[in-house]
């Protein structure tokens, strides 16, 4: 709520002497105000990065930590589990990002019509966003519990997943078409994508809706008068105008999708087999199940590098956006 309080009458002479005196010496107040934030961030965000760097070139031996150079990275690249996991992650990310952006854009276009019900729709559509990924995963697992889930009846046809007793979450991945690359994905991975899209949709919708509301009606209307139909207007006017926001959404979805792990925990735990083992979950299993912290640190660093590239990309786009405003 912005309030305006009438400012008291100014005593100009004393104001100017005060500001002059302030300008003469360095004002340390802002540094003290920022210091606590900087300290916390150094301890929790910056120091761990260096710690991870150090961990990634070591290996835990019974005698203690031993320096092993780049061997952890080598072992990662040579492990087929890692290569497969990269494949799962790529498939997951493409499906998740493309579906979320497309659906989010369509829903945002529908909401942008400013009908009387828009507020109610936004509120209702937003409820999935407020749920934790563990809860969302649990909810989606209940829907397809083998035999007892509400959707299992439909999805459990022998024609779809082969022999009886299998369901979305237990059917194995089909034989891959392209050598090692795990495509086509297992039903569980597709289901994981759908559940993740369900949870991410509200956020993307709101982001795109906010961008759509900055597009002036006159631009749209004049293009309609010029004879463009609705699809042409969207393609040639609306999308170019909100492209920066779409790119930001794309980056942040990719970032979130790569690092979100709760849904995998609650829904599939990497299975069946390793068909839903995305990189974030692999990091957990190397680190905390296999207790191979050196190798996990190497993997964390590689994920972090991709993250940094994504962040740099986002910052570039937002800066371009600010400059163009």
């Amino acid at each position: 709520m912005e309030q305006t309080v009438p400012a008291p009458l100014r005593d100009d002479s004393s104001a100017s002497t005060r500001t002059k005196r302030k300008r003469r010496r360095i004002d340390w107040l802002p540094f003290w105000l920022i210091l606590p934030t900087v300290l916390v961030l150094l301890a929790i965000q910056v120091y761990p990065v260096f710690y991870t760097l150090v961990l990634s070139v070591q290996e835990r031996k019974p005698s203690g930590w031993v320096y092993v150079g780049l061997r952890n990275f080598e072992r990662l690249f040579n492990a087929s589990a890692v290569r497969e996991s990269v494949g799962h992650t790529l498939i997951f990310l493409v499906g998740y990002v493309v579906l979320t952006l497309t659906l989010g854009f369509i829903i945002a276009l529908l909401l942008n019509r400013k009908s009387r019900l828009s507020g109610a729709y936004i509120t209702l559509l937003f409820i999935p966003w407020i749920l934790a990924d563990i809860i969302a995963g649990a909810v989606f697992r209940l829907l397809v519990l083998p035999d007892y889930g509400l959707f299992s009846g439909i999805l459990q046809q022998p024609g779809i997943f082969g022999p009886n007793g299998l369901s979305v979450l237990t059917a194995p991945a089909p034989k891959p078409w392209f050598g090692e690359f795990p495509f086509p994905p297992s039903p569980a991975l597709i289901y994981l994508i759908l559940a993740s899209v369900w949870r991410a949709l509200p956020f993307v919708t709101i982001l795109l809706l906010a961008a759509l509301q900055t597009v002036s009606n006159e631009v749209i209307e004049s293009s309609r008068i010029d004879g463009a139909n609705a699809l042409q207007t969207i393609r040639h006017i609306t999308i170019p105008l909100i492209l920066p926001t779409m790119v930001v959404a794309l980056f942040s979805l990719t970032l979130g999708g790569m690092n979100g792990v709760g849904m995998v925990f609650a829904l599939t735990a990497g299975g069946p087999g390793n068909s839903t083992e995305v990189l974030s979950y692999l990091l957990y299993s190397i680190g905390w199940s296999a207790l191979d912290f050196g190798r996990a640190a190497a993997l964390a660093l590689m994920i972090a590098v991709v993250n940094l590239l994504l962040i740099a990309g986002t910052m570039r786009v937002t800066r371009l956006q600010q400059r163009s405003e």
């Binding site: 965000q45 910056v46 990065v49 991870t52 690092n259 990091l283 912290f293 660093l301 994920i303």
Partner: peptide, 19 residues
């Protein structure tokens, strides 16, 4: 600080766990 915004908890977790 803006760059840190994007650093996910996941990649720092290993070091935080050891800390």
């Amino acid at each position: 600080i803006l760059a840190i915004t994007g650093v996910p908890l996941l990649t720092n977790l290993l070091a935080l766990y050891q800390m």
